[in-house]
């Protein structure tokens, strides 16, 4: 087994990197893969909370790097989904506590034991981003349909390209089809036109995200919602399966409730 190492990044903060990492990691584990999600946001860790594992964190990956503990001691196993692990960040340290070489070495140590290593990258383009990206081979760039987020994503893609990461794929998060239809929000094609990279998934705005975040249970573990389906589809595409994009436009104007009703009544959920 040699894991694929994927960094989830964005440039701009608050676009859903950590939520995406947690949900994709849980979805990949549900599909039978052995996955570790690494919180690379040293000093501002959140992945443990979103995954609902904060009470079980003892060591973190800085402890591993500094050889205070073994890597197996720092890994937190999720008991709800077989094969899902978290490697938390240190909350009491800063991003200077690690360097790119140490991050590469950490990923190399984990690679033989996992199918996927997902790195949750901090916002920004400084040391934290460079550390997280250094260990990865592939990248998922998360953006929301807002001009500042797209602009920051463009900057990050340029840096990832210069670092030789490939493939670099895009997740458009929090899309509101109603607003797109009214011309108040950037459409998927507008974003792809600027960023010119492959799209791996579009996640619609969904209040279940807030609910699942506060409950500490990634949506892809159990919840049936548009965002959960979008993340499950992204995980499938990461596994190389040909999954069509969800038809978000078809339920624009009718709201998510009607979409869910349509989904449960056996209507087509995909294009």
């Amino acid at each position: 087994m040699a894991a694929r190492v994927i960094v989830t990044t964005s440039g701009k903060g608050g676009v859903g990197k950590t939520t995406s990492t947690a949900n994709i990691a849980a979805a990949l584990a549900k599909f039978g893969k052995k996955v570790v999600a690494i919180d690379a946001d040293v000093g501002l860790r959140n992945l443990d909370v979103i995954m609902g594992l904060e009470n079980r964190v003892v060591y973190n990956f800085i402890d591993v790097i500094e050889k205070t503990c073994k890597i197996s001691q720092a890994l937190v196993k999720d008991k709800r989904v077989p094969g899902l692990f978290l490697l938390p960040a240190a909350q009491t340290r800063t991003k200077d506590a690690v360097n790119p070489e140490q991050m590469i070495a950490l990923c190399e140590e984990l690679k033989p034991d996992f199918d996927f290593i997902l790195l949750d990258c901090p916002a920004g383009i400084e040391g934290g981003f460079k550390n997280a990206a250094a260990g990865a081979d592939e990248a998922l760039v998360v953006t929301t349909p807002e001009i500042p987020a797209v602009r920051d994503a463009d900057r990050i893609i340029g840096m990832l390209e210069s670092m030789g990461k490939s493939p670099i794929r895009l997740i458009i998060n929090r899309l509101r089809p109603n607003m797109v239809q009214d011309g108040d929000m950037l459409a998927k094609d507008d974003i792809l036109d600027v960023l010119s990279i492959d799209l791996i998934g579009v996640v619609p705005e969904d209040e279940n995200v807030i609910r699942s975040t506060n409950n500490g249970e990634p949506m892809t573990m159990s919840l049936d919602s548009p965002a959960a389906h979008a993340y499950l589809n992204i995980a499938e595409r990461l596994l190389g399966r040909d999954v069509p994009l969800m038809d978000l436009e078809s339920y624009a104007g009718r709201g998510f409730f009607s979409w869910i009703k349509k989904f449960f009544s056996g209507g087509s959920k995909k294009k």
């Binding site: 383009i125 602009r151 463009d154 893609i157 340029g158 600027v194 010119s196």
Partner: peptide
Amino acid sequence: GSMRGGQKVETDGDVLLWGHLNPG
């Protein structure tokens, strides 16, 4: 190829960009 945000080209001569010049 396109130039992405944050990338910069400076030269005393002429420039032909065979791609897009993105915001930033």
